[in-house]
Design a protein around this nucleic acid. Sequence first.
RNA 1: CGGGGAGUAGUUCAGAUGGCUAGAACGCUGCAUUUGGGAUGCAGAGGUCGCAGGUUCAAGUCCUGUCUCCCCGACCA
Length: 434
Amino acid sequence: MKEASTDNIQFRNEFSSGIKTYQDVSKEQESLNAQLLIKAGFINPELSGVYTYTRLGCEVLKNIENLTREHMSKWGGEILMSSLQPVESWEITDRLENMSSLFEARGANDISRKLNSSRYILGPTHEEIATPLAKRYIKSYRDLPFAFYQIQTKFRNEARPKSGLLRGREFRMKDLYSFHASEEDFLEFYEIMKKEYMLLFEDLGLADDTFITLADGGNFTEKFSHEFQTLLPQGEDIIYLDRKNNIAYNKEIVNEENANRLGVNFDELEQVTASEVGNIFPLDFKYSQPFDLTYTTKEGDTKPIYMGCYGLGTSRLMGVIAEKFADEKGLVWPERIAPAKYHIVTVSKDNKDIAHEKSKELFEVIGKDSLWDRRTKVTVGEKLNDADLIGCPFRLVVSPKSIENGGIEVKRRASDVVEYMDMEELFNKYGKTR
RNA sequence: CGGGGAGUAGUUCAGAUGGCUAGAACGCUGCAUUUGGGAUGCAGAGGUCGCAGGUUCAAGUCCUGUCUCCCCGACCA
């Protein structure tokens, strides 16, 4: 294999990484996250509310989802349910007519009339798969509690997609389903998940601005569900925030009845806009009943199963984080989910000098946690601007000037402080990888 | 689904009242010069003007239909 030597921004020794930034992005898209993510080459719009995750965006999405896996795998095993779902199951739960955002796919189409005429639902959520699936695993009280999760592309035919990744027709979501013998057991697990979600938001750098928010249970239940709302000026939701008690209330449940029920004076609370990045629901018997999901008790009785479901919008999180931390120069990624920790910028006329040699060594030693801008046909200014736009946590400039000053010029994306050090000092101080 | 705006080069856009052999900037290709904050010069390539009908000697421009995108609202397990 020939050495990767194209004049590009290199990533992980890929021959050609396909990483490109764009100077002009249509002003049509108003939302900051879409503007920046398109400009910086993280996503590409395909249809209204539908995006491709290009090289850098795919990396960020994977990082968010792998972090999510670390937390969820403590409590349930990962599976991958089908995206196409049988219409019959949706008839059983009576959601075929009641959910407005269903996409329907038909087996018989213009391309192949030989196929049957079966109708499918393009999965917007997975209770209709998860519940019957659980029947295969749960027979006895000995099988409980039980939980599994998946991370998958969901499809919802939103009337109006908007705000880039914040609200699409196709988006990524983690959904976990839990099954319990009793309500007490369910509630215990529900609290565990709340804590686990907050730990995840801490890793994502969002903990300080994310609040558990009481919300409508939807057509799942009469009980409240709990949303995780991240403060964001461009968010879709208005929440009533009680900072003192660290809890919030979605505007949709703010009324006199709930004021009395909860003993809360909503007028005293702060109204803020936020984006719903997660939502967890007590499902009670809402799905176990129609699918006849039961277990046998120690005494030999047959009882229905308590269920809960726990959603997290991984692609929406990417949009929220992009938008929340961005500054006038571009994206600013939290270290755990950035496409790379280090963005190496080489200042070299022809990639034949000492700056290039040192950059190459740096890139090879750091390995997968670095991007290397080794382009020679663009000016330094353009490379520095691109580094700011892409938003990796650290920028490492290797140039005649930096070498004169002691080696590598190190600057954090979120700071203006510039330091000079050699490779050993760099790794001692900031680590080789994340 | 209601209201508003827009579809012209790879991208961002300009092309009142029909005359276009369709432009600019950026990007792209080649050569030379250039390298610390979005280079310089020279030479090039690149378009069924969203799609389908219609009016006209003549349509990017006018009419009808249709599709798509964006924004506001309604909706949003």
